[in-house]
């Protein structure tokens, strides 16, 4: 591959991720609205929100770490997108692989945590403490999934995982071969998105949206952008591991939107868990299902 193509891919991948992520945000707000029998926001609402927030006249900063936190949160995701293969573009997926991606995805979280820390608002700190607790909870089933996938396909290289699945056709997709792991992964994915009933770290009525408490203007705008990336990344990763990646863009988009739609449809039906209940739930059911699935994979 020439350097020019690679550079183009590295630029396009985050851009595509952002645009698709905006559409996903719209979808999830629409799903929420429909379930509550509302009309929901117009088509470009997520874009309006982001432009408006960046277009604020006064921007309030709590110091340089606050700024850097937002930079890291957005920049970390931009980097992570280049590790996620999409149809026709592999970026540097072969140089990182699954484990690297999982850990690169923690860097934006860390950036956000640092930025929130400097805001000197206890609501934000509580939010981060809860977010990290939630991470500890949902990442355990998730690493079981990661192990099962790596063991099953014999590699952590995402491009190879996709190639193996596509060669075998839908019957050879991860979800067909490892259904229990796919279920565990879906629950972990749902929790990782931080939506109801797992939105303990936002909890507007309790801790005033936690990490977002002191974020306004382009700071909040950065977090909106980050949310777009987050939805996109989680769904593409799940599609890559269990649904054979994308044969072409149409199928790919169908799959990733479906992956977000399933947990979001469930999300608006439930109230929020308490922190310890969330930990208990995620350490019990998905872990149990995942371990059984893992045993079946490794037998």
């Amino acid at each position: 591959m020439s350097i020019g193509t690679l550079a183009l891919e590295l630029l396009l991948m985050p851009l595509v991720a952002f645009v698709v992520g905006l559409a996903m945000v719209l979808m999830l707000r629409r799903i929420g609205a429909r379930i509550q029998r509302r009309v929901g926001p117009p088509l470009l609402q997520p874009l309006y929100d982001v432009v408006k927030l960046y277009g604020k006249q006064t921007q309030i900063s709590h110091g340089i770490v606050h700024d850097i936190g937002i930079v890291m949160a957005v920049g970390g995701y931009i980097a992570a997108e280049t590790l996620l293969p999409v149809p026709g573009m592999d970026g540097i997926a072969a140089k990182g692989g699954l484990i690297t991606l999982v850990y690169v995805l923690m860097v934006p979280m860390l950036g956000l945590a640092l930025g929130v820390g400097q805001c000197a608002n206890p609501n934000g700190s509580i939010g981060i403490s809860r977010a990290l607790t939630a991470m500890l909870a949902y990442d355990i089933p998730f690493v079981i999934v990661v192990f099962g996938i790596s063991w099953h396909y014999g590699t952590t290289d995402l491009t190879r995982i996709i190639a193996l699945q596509q060669a075998a056709g839908p019957a050879g997709w991860g979800a067909a071969e490892m259904p229990l792991l796919a279920i565990a992964g879906l629950i972990a994915l749902h929790a990782s998105l931080g939506k109801q009933p797992f939105e303990i770290y936002v909890a507007p009525a309790e801790i005033a949206t936690g990490p977002m408490v002191e974020m306004g203007g382009k700071y909040l705008g950065g977090l909106f952008v980050m949310q777009c990336f987050q939805l996109y990344t989680a769904s593409v990763l799940y599609t890559t591991l269990f649904l054979g990646g994308g044969e072409n863009w149409i199928l790919f988009l169908l799959k990733i939107f479906a992956v977000v739609a399933i947990p979001m449809t469930l999300a608006y039906l439930f109230p929020r868990y308490r922190t310890e209940d969330l930990v208990r739930l995620l350490w019990k059911w998905p872990v149990l299902i995942g371990l059984v699935g893992l045993a079946l994979v490794m037998r």
Partner: peptide, 27 residues
Amino acid sequence: WVSSLMFAGFGIGALLFYAGGNRSKAV
């Protein structure tokens, strides 16, 4: 590659942050 791209990502993030939107005021 991974680190370089991470820093490139931070660079773009910084560009978006510092170039986009009005300059911030520390409080």
